[in-house]
Simulated assay, not measured.
Amino acid sequence: MLLSVENVTKTFGRNKAVDNVSFALEKSAMIGIIGRSGAGKSTFLRMVNRLTDAITGAIKFDGRDILHLKAAEKRAWQSDCAMIFQQFNLVPRMDVVSNVLHGTLNRRSTFATMFNLYPQGDIHRAIDILDRLGIAEQAPKRAEALSGGQQQRVAIARALMQDPKIILADEPIASLDPMNAQVVMQALRRIHEEDGRMVIANLHTLDTARRYCDRVIGMRGGRIVFDGTPDQLTTGVARDIYGADASFSEAATSTSIEALETPAERAVHQAEATV
């Protein structure tokens, strides 16, 4: 079993943020975790990355319980388990390639870190990764000069610099417009398919989960209430995950460009397509 999550629980005071969560993955896959705000999605990813600790349970990757790792072993795991955040977490006034090179910090000496010294090979690799993500020309620019979608691709490039076994993405497209959201999700999907890396992404839109993920896990109140394939994620199932009534509309959560068009705009685009 590549990843095994066994009865994991995390509490904050009397509140169970993650409540007895269990699932397993036999092989690398792209997993989407969906649910309303407060469902426990982010807390779960932070436990996998060891940014916060579980109260009970086990999370085993390739047979090793990562919740028991300490000191150097814990840091090594965090290098193997890259994290991508909604707000990018870049250094705004630093150039793009240096932000990407920060993905190597866990394996560099304190001296090299203090004086911002990087091997030439790492610099070339960082630029190659940026090129793979279609933003190599942005390498010398400050991160703050880039669009949100470009900044998120820089964050993905930084994660790839770690050469991780697993990538965790916490709401990676929540702050992006539909076009940039598609670009970022396509990049994560290619990374899974071409590199064979496991990707687990917290998502807030059903169409995104269906389009890009091999498996979808729905969380509500800290518990898993759905675990299945994208085609099993029906509107009825979604209502249960989000605790919604019959008025629930998927269009309100859609990231597709078409869903945001007015009927008049859609008619124009359909007419243009037939010309």
Rank of each mutant, 00 (worst) to 15 (best):
L146I: 02
I156Y: 10
H269M: 08
A82M: 12
M114D: 03
S254F: 00
I33R: 10
I167S: 05
Q150P: 06
L176H: 06
L101I: 01
I173C: 05
R14G: 14
F61H: 07
Q186Y: 00
I167E: 05
D122P: 08
I217N: 02
V225I: 12
V8M: 10
G228S: 12
I217S: 02
A145Q: 14
V5R: 08
V275N: 14
S28T: 15
R266N: 08
A155Y: 08
G32R: 07
G121I: 06
A187E: 10
G221W: 01
E26T: 11
H68Y: 00
E144I: 13
T274E: 15
F12S: 09
T205N: 15
A145W: 07
M185K: 00
L188E: 08
A251T: 06
S79A: 11
D131H: 14
D214R: 07
A174W: 03
G221A: 11
I129P: 11
V96K: 07
E261D: 06
N116V: 06
L25N: 09
E137M: 09
R190W: 00
G121S: 14
F12C: 03
V184C: 12
H269T: 02
R189L: 03
A273T: 05
D240W: 00
F44Y: 05
P119C: 02
K27A: 12
D80G: 01
I217F: 05
T262C: 00
R189I: 06
A76M: 00
L69D: 03
V216D: 08
V21C: 01
V18Y: 10
V91I: 12
S4Y: 03
R220W: 00
H102S: 01
A139N: 09
I59N: 02
D128M: 12
S42P: 04
R125D: 13
N7S: 15
L206S: 06
N20E: 12
V21K: 04
F111D: 01
G63I: 01
V91C: 00
V8R: 11
T205Q: 15
G228H: 11
V5S: 07
Q232H: 12
W77M: 05
D122M: 13
L233E: 05
M198H: 01
R210E: 06
N7R: 15
L168W: 07
P172L: 09
L117R: 15
Q182M: 07
R215Q: 09
D177L: 09
V184G: 12
F226T: 12
S249L: 00
Q186P: 00
V154N: 05
F61L: 05
L2M: 14
P119T: 06
R125Y: 11
V268E: 13
E272S: 11
K10G: 07
Q182A: 13
M83W: 04
E137A: 14
P164I: 03
I241W: 04
V48H: 09
D95I: 08
A145C: 04
P178K: 07
L206I: 15
E171D: 08
V237Y: 03
M83H: 03
D240H: 09
T274R: 15
A264Y: 05
P263C: 01
S249R: 10
R107Q: 07
G103A: 03
K60E: 02
S249F: 02
P230W: 08
L3T: 08
I191V: 13
S42D: 04
V216H: 06
R50T: 09
I166W: 04
M198P: 04
N116K: 14
